[in-house]
Amino acid sequence: MDRNELIQQLKEQIIKQLNLADKKPEDIKDDDPLFVEGLGLDSIDALELIVLLQQEYNIKLKNAEEGQTIFRSVSTMADYILEQQAGSAN
């Protein structure tokens, strides 16, 4: 799966996992902030995103502090997933 496909998949998964029933994937821009002024996610949503990474990509966040950077946008999430997958493949 290339980066663009992963970004599209992530948008669909975020909408499903976080019950954003009023959103469509095209409403979420790749680099929009996920929290506060962007999608308006909150701290519980952050925990759900951690679950999503574990459930769908088998990635466990080692340090919760990293979340702020990883979950800045869908782009940063995709980059982190690709980086982790590349790391585990080597």
């Binding site: 976080l18 519980i44 949503d45 759900e48 459930q55």
Partner: peptide, 10 residues
């Protein structure tokens, strides 16, 4: 039973 959901827990 699989992944406890924070958003259900609250």
């Amino acid at each position: 039973k699989t992944f406890p959901s924070p958003s259900l827990f609250v």
